[in-house]
Deep mutational scan, measured.
Amino acid sequence: HNGKLCKLKGIAPLQLGKCNITGWLLGNPECDSLLPARSWSYIVETPNSENGACYPGDLIDYEELREQLSSVSSLERFEIFPKESSWPNHTFNGVTVSCSHRGKSSFYRNLLWLTKKGDSYPKLTNSYVNNKGKEVLVLWGVHHPSSSDEQQSLYSNGNAYVSVASSNYNRRFTPEIAARPKVRDQHGRMNYYWTLLEPGDTIIFEATGNLIAPWYAFALSRGFESGIITSNASMHECNTKCQTPQGAINSNLPFQNIHPVTIGECPKYVRSTKLRMVTGLRNIPSIQYRGLFGAIAGFIEGGWTGMIDGWYGYHHQNEQGSGYAADQKSTQNAINGITNKVNSVIEKMNTQFTAVGKEFNNLEKRMENLNKKVDDGFLDIWTYNAELLVLLENERTLDFHDLNVKNLYEKVKSQLKNNAKEIGNGCFEFYHKCDNECMESVRNGTYDYPKYSEESKLNREKIDGVKLESMGVYQILAIYSTVASSLVLLVSLGAISFWMCSNGSLQCRICI
């Protein structure tokens, strides 16, 4: 991952900044910058967002509201009850120091605090018919004063009620008058409520006091790749198909172990950190130390980045220098085999997901714990399936590479015959000098055995068991695999060879 928040398929997220979902939807004055928000790819909250409900109280069923919003990608904020005409018999300019803005008392931008007009609070009834052709999110509140005197001074009615009804919602609220500790300079409380109004449905408000009335509502448009994440990451000019709280993932790998919460087309989250597919040879310690064997393909974004291909070729060293050249036929066979294998694994496992966190309130801790156990169970199954699949494929890959290298080895052996000696570690020792032209003939299969047989015969008789390297004779190393990324691999195959001279070296080696 890149540690950044990015656009998702070209669409920017909605960053709530210092506000949370509650503050944004109710219209906390400190969240005025969010009022123009219309569309987004996903919503970003920060872990310690401080601006929620400015007048103390709870947004009821907040967790369910977050779940609903996680599939919303755009909205239209509109005046559901026009301020100047909807409440002619009531005062609608209630403000509070708890919702101060720029040093002055204020109130929510989407709600109206209705109080008595003169000395009376006549029963009010108002309704709205949803003609938007889509779901409408309606929010309101109920004020709970701290004393009967406060109730009387604001609403005149000691036994007030609030009723809200639609086809799918029907509740009646009565204020709970009680002494409470002071929070944000208030002994009173406000509880906030919401409902989704279906197209064509009607919502009716009736009250004799204590109503925090809707002013603006939201017509919602769903987008199934949307979601809500909690993150401290910063926004950058970048684009992605998959976003996590820790950063964007741009990967076609089937798995990731970065974060379980994802938005967009994302690899499946697994616990494993070692889900690797081999593309090189079986481990040979001396070669492995030099980083030549054991190439791997990573299938977990965050564990290993991208696929690494092994390729086969020849390396030689003689009086004229040293050089490398790919054996294109065996390399292409290996590439085709690995590509098919990788595609097979991805096809089997690479279903892209959006995974969002589930919200539970403080009273639902047991449910949250149960949900976590269920999620953990599914996660263990996914991890096991992934590891088992790759384990089985790896064994076949190792066998496949062994065969490829063996074929190259036999190709060289059949040409050199007794003009060189096998020394048991995949290397041959020449009994004759071999210049670049000679080396090329070994690589392309045109090695002239009779041409060098007499010199080889004489050297075999002279050496008589002495280690060949100390006599200045020449080696050919018969097994060799270097490691390159897919891009470098293609470039390498396009070149005939490249040279690395070893000044004054008397050794001649050709490596497979």
Rank of each mutant, 00 (worst) to 15 (best):
residue 231 S to G: 08
residue 236 H to N: 08
residue 240 T to K: 03
residue 241 K to L: 12
residue 243 Q to V: 07
residue 257 N to A: 05
residue 258 I to E: 02
residue 259 H to I: 02
residue 259 H to N: 14
residue 262 T to H: 09
residue 264 G to Y: 05
residue 265 E to W: 02
residue 266 C to M: 09
residue 268 K to S: 11
residue 275 L to W: 02
residue 276 R to K: 12
residue 280 G to S: 02
residue 290 R to P: 05
residue 295 A to L: 08
residue 297 A to Y: 10
residue 299 F to E: 05
residue 301 E to K: 08
residue 304 W to K: 00
residue 312 Y to T: 08
residue 314 Y to P: 01
residue 315 H to D: 03
residue 319 E to H: 04
residue 320 Q to W: 07
residue 320 Q to G: 07
residue 322 S to V: 11
residue 323 G to P: 03
residue 324 Y to S: 01
residue 325 A to E: 00
residue 329 K to G: 05
residue 331 T to Q: 02
residue 333 N to E: 11
residue 334 A to T: 07
residue 335 I to V: 15
residue 339 T to N: 13
residue 340 N to M: 14
residue 340 N to H: 13
residue 342 V to I: 15
residue 350 N to K: 10
residue 351 T to G: 14
residue 352 Q to E: 03
residue 355 A to F: 08
residue 355 A to N: 01
residue 356 V to I: 11
residue 357 G to W: 04
residue 361 N to I: 05
residue 363 L to T: 05
residue 364 E to I: 08
residue 372 K to G: 01
residue 375 D to K: 05
residue 375 D to C: 06
residue 378 F to N: 12
residue 379 L to Q: 14
residue 379 L to W: 11
residue 381 I to L: 15
residue 387 E to D: 11
residue 389 L to F: 14
residue 391 L to D: 07
residue 392 L to Y: 13
residue 394 N to L: 01
residue 398 L to I: 07
residue 398 L to A: 00
residue 398 L to H: 04
residue 399 D to E: 08
residue 401 H to R: 02
residue 406 K to R: 15
residue 406 K to W: 06
residue 407 N to A: 14
residue 407 N to P: 01
residue 408 L to S: 03
residue 413 K to P: 07
residue 413 K to N: 13
residue 414 S to D: 11
residue 417 K to I: 13
residue 419 N to W: 05
residue 424 G to I: 01
residue 427 C to G: 09
residue 427 C to K: 07
residue 431 Y to D: 06
residue 438 C to P: 06
residue 439 M to P: 05
residue 441 S to R: 14
residue 441 S to L: 08
residue 442 V to R: 13
residue 443 R to N: 05
residue 448 D to L: 06
residue 452 Y to L: 01
residue 460 R to I: 11
residue 461 E to Y: 03
residue 462 K to Q: 11
residue 462 K to F: 01
residue 468 L to A: 09
residue 468 L to D: 01
residue 469 E to H: 08
residue 472 G to V: 02
residue 474 Y to Q: 02
residue 480 Y to P: 12
residue 480 Y to F: 06
residue 480 Y to E: 11
residue 482 T to S: 13
residue 482 T to W: 10
residue 485 S to T: 11
residue 493 L to G: 05
residue 493 L to I: 03
residue 495 A to G: 07
residue 495 A to L: 04
residue 496 I to M: 10
residue 502 S to T: 11
residue 508 C to V: 12
residue 510 I to C: 06
